[in-house]
Design a protein around this nucleic acid. Structure first.
Lengths: 340, 340
DNA sequence: TCTTCGATCAATATCGATTTTGATGAGCCT
DNA sequence: AGGCTCATCAAAATCGATATTGATCGAAGA
């Protein structure tokens, strides 16, 4: 192709088309002031020549970067804490791409201040909107963004008074159904393996568990509620510990794929067979389909979560002002493994 | 803090400090024309007021965005193909951050043209450098970037004549040692579960396997070499298939954590016990420590790969011109599971 | 005393896209 | 012919950071 020495920008594109910069700029954005045929001609030429608009220029002028940023939670080194985050990212990408937005992911270093990361993104004008997970009841990130009036959607709810956009999986429902399922199978000492108590979804999970047990007339034993970080290693150690104490559990409800693995390995470490225990897990990947025994799982794929989060984000960016329309709760699907 | 109505930019920062824009701009970059005390004063004020430089303005003027972009390979929906990519991202972030670079991750949609993605990033000036994996012998992305003279580091080698920066794990060595280990344990029909044959690392893995078998005087049976996509589902099905044919394998060498799971589940599907087979795997996470039986693994953490890739990238961006200094091969560490 | 140097200044240009302003011509209606 | 709309124009301003130029001013050196 004609590879001129000069960079391909609006100016050279306009010259090439024998149109004014104004018209080309408008035509590329389907401006109503431009004739349909001209729009077509301009867009065709732009595609053929491979014109890509310079984000620098665009951002500087408009303050928009046409990109959505996903904050990725930190992973402890040398342990597994996460699977499928790329799935989430891809779900985001899928929807964002179609709307002309690029996707950016910023990993957070463990222990780093998330607000600093937000500042860099917002003040540096690196993104038009933010998506992040693991919300806290009084999430400082949410507060900060509300104060700055910067568009965001959280994966998870908060307890803040000011409403904001969120998408969430109904964890209360999942642990409620999981508990009921285990109770119906005759288990009475059900261990809830939960994320750190400060996370919102930890509290919802506890609520569903309590509700089911209370309805069944069973006392809650606080020793059976483990608030752990979301790593396999920690879960493994804690489960081992728990099993060696008095009146150990006979069933487990795990918060995700990875803690499920950790729990099972913890049991095996002390000579116990996971198959002898009741076992339910919330999952966002199909990982547990590949381990033995396969638990009853409550599945909501991260990729779909990414899509939903992004649809909400796009509506927010397009100016939806009624925030309550940007809140969405999804129910996990129950998967019962087929006996082999 | 003093939240003026005006945005905090160089101009307002300069006014606040009673210095000229020129001096502030230089001071922020430790320019040699500025007194040490002034530099300190400027940087202190910038930190206090939370000044973040606008990427738009910077990019527009200098062409630099101070960000490094990682291309993330596509994940097939509703299957597991990947763990630990966030680890890689975090390794990249860790090193990049310290050098003042932001990190961006762009997921590729399955089936999308990667060159389009590259164009958007390069022509849109969205990043200063690119990192990506799963190289092909004549990788079109590498060719494209070489032609454009855009900085990049690949995770994996190529067979292109023009040298380029890469980091790679020595897969040939890993499969060679794995094969030797299995042979020494008496296994004779070793199945190599490989990624698609077009990937460079597939070829290296095959080479190590061939070498060990040939040295042991064992004929290569092409039916024992499976070139599969990197998903658990596909591996599971293919292993099942293979086991039902004549003279099935007695041992497996898996390309990663996920195909290991798929393989084991495939065996279980038809009533076989994975523990009865020889089993080695290359891994980039500790996932397989949590499954039974735990294979002998050849481990190189993705997070460390991310760090190394980024160090090479930074040296490239700082102007290292001798590309052969930007090529690095790492050896995976052998982990033998402790018997329980 | 004259020169040089170091640290700073103000003013201006530049990067690319968008936006505004006011103008121009062509075609249409009355 | 006069008025109007539509599609387009050229020119200039703007966003924020950097780079360049030539000037200033005090202190140090010859």
């Amino acid at each position: 192709m004609g590879d001129d020495r000069a960079r391909l920008n609006l100016k050279s594109l306009a010259r090439h088309l024998d149109l004014s910069i104004t018209t080309v700029s408008r035509a590329l954005r389907n401006g109503p002031e431009v004739r349909k045929e001209t729009i077509e001609r301009v867009q065709k030429a732009a595609a053929e020549l491979g014109y890509v608009r310079d984000v620098g220029g665009l951002t500087l002028r408009t303050g928009l970067s046409y990109s959505i940023c996903v904050l990725m939670s930190a992973v402890p080194p040398d342990d597994i804490a996460d699977t499928g985050s790329v799935g989430l990212l891809q779900g985001v990408h899928e929807v964002a791409q179609a709307a002309g937005y690029a996707v950016t992911a910023v990993p957070l270093a463990p222990g780093a201040d998330p607000i600093d990361a937000l500042k860099t993104i917002i003040d540096g004008r690196r993104a038009d909107g933010l998506i992040f997970d693991h919300t806290l009841p009084m999430d400082p990130r949410v507060r900060f963004l509300l104060e700055r009036d910067f568009p965001f959607v959280t994966f998870g709810r908060t307890e803040l008074f000011t409403p904001h956009a969120w998408f969430d999986i109904d964890d209360e429902d999942a642990t409620y159904r999981a508990s009921q399922h285990l109770l119906a199978s005759g288990y009475r000492r059900i261990c809830l393996i939960n994320p750190p108590a400060e996370f919102m979804f930890s509290q919802y999970r506890l609520r569903g568990y309590r509700k089911a047990l209370t309805e069944a007339g069973i006392d809650i034993d606080p020793r059976l509620i483990l608030d752990l970080d979301l790593t396999a290693r920690r879960t493994r150690a804690s489960v081992k510990d728990l099993m060696l104490q008095e009146s150990p559990p006979d069933a487990f409800i795990c918060v995700n794929d990875i803690t499920s693995l950790g729990m099972m390995t913890g049991l095996r470490d002390i000579g116990l067979d996971p198959a002898d225990f009741g076992f339910c897990a919330s999952t966002t990947t199909r990982l547990i389909e590949y381990v033995e025994p396969t638990p009853v799982s409550f599945y909501f794929p991260l990729q779909e979560a990414g899509r939903r989060l992004t649809r909400l984000m796009l509506r927010r960016l397009e100016g939806e002002t009624d925030i309550t329309h940007l809140q969405e709760l999804a129910t996990a699907e129950m998967h019962v493994p087929t006996r082999r």
